[in-house]
Design a protein around this nucleic acid. Structure first.
Lengths: 198, 198
DNA sequence: GTCTATAGCCTGATAGAC
DNA sequence: GTCTATCAGGCTATAGAC
């Protein structure tokens, strides 16, 4: 029963660290900052994690693993390819809209994740949902490179969120453009037209 | 004539700092690191910049200002909307392919740029090229929200570069997918089909 | 314009009491 | 498991000689 307490504290630390790393990145958040948010001393963190790197890695893994399932579900269900595309775009947009920490961590890993960590995350977390995306892409447009089309599908959604903080200051920028429902509608329409979905 | 030397050194510092900030971000690069790359002491940097923030800001401004022009040109030339779209995608892809520092800095600013800096960059650097993009979007698809379509156009290109380090480990990932020419071809084809270009 | 020296603070990480 | 105390070093920024 000793382990129960330890695991809970460990998970509590991870859950406090996730939004901090999402906002400040690895080098922008110190162990002292995290310990303060957790409500403990910095030394105590080292009882649960051997060093800062491991804490960061575990926080990231936890943040990512949960999310991959929801996306895979939307992709592997039944229905015509067009219906599944629409469902994927909807659920992916909703996910990005409701969990900014996940999105920020994803951006950060793409930007500065080291190679071994990226490989691990790609193979253990994103491989399955991405495979489902390429399968759908293949059905939708057999004449197109499925890998590239899958990336385009994800990028179309993600970029609207990534640019939200700057679009406010760009010509034609309005707050409706940040509404996940509008983003999903725009992206679905664009993709269905491009891929001649029925 | 005193200023000439000072300006040169100042610019030299900026040019050394740009790739470092692109790789490590603001908090990941110290004044000592920069001074070492420049070949001077840390104290000397403070003769040219009042503090680290200002050095970062000036480096960013310099990295961005140059680039905006090339994009605007491709958009404002003559030709049918479809031709101009193709030319925009080509030049934008080429730019991203040949200047990874610019791309990384752009990603970083979207991720963690503070509001006043984003406003400045948006209004002074990206406003004109983005306006040209929305104008093109309007011509291509009057029934579509021009602002959202312009974002989609940029996002389609950028995301293929952003994901390059991780796509290597994803199903179907091949090195050809990183070739700017292939990316441009894929994106152009997708957009022209979606927008019914002639 | 650049240097050395240094102030004052923050960093990751450890030692050892409880 | 958590604490206080601490180490060794890095950080931004400044002072003052040259």
């Amino acid at each position: 029963m000793r382990n129960v307490k330890k695991r809970d504290t460990r998970m509590y630390i991870i859950e406090k660290a996730i939004p901090m790393f999402a906002a400040g990145g690895y080098s922008g958040v110190s162990m002292r900052h995290i310990s303060q948010a957790v409500g403990t001393s910095a030394a105590a963190l080292y009882h649960h994690f051997p060093d800062k790197q491991k804490l960061y890695f575990d926080a990231m893994s936890h943040a990512f693993t949960d999310k991959a399932e929801g996306i895979t579900e939307a992709l592997e269900g039944s229905g015509t390819p067009s219906q599944r595309l629409e469902r994927f775009v909807d659920s992916f947009t909703e996910l990005m809209g409701e969990d900014p920490d996940f999105r920020a961590l994803l951006q950060r890993e793409l930007l500065e994740g080291d190679k071994t960590r990226l490989k691990l995350v790609a193979e253990q977390v994103f491989s399955r949902p991405f495979q489902a995306m390429t399968a759908l892409a293949e059905e939708l447009a057999p004449d197109c490179d499925a890998h590239m089309l899958a990336i385009s599908m994800a990028g179309l959604v993600l970029f609207h969120f990534e640019t939200a903080p700057v679009r406010r200051f760009l010509p034609g920028g309005r707050s409706e453009h940040n509404d996940p429902k509008n983003i999903a509608r725009h992206v679905t329409k664009l993709l269905l037209k491009a891929l001649g979905g029925s």
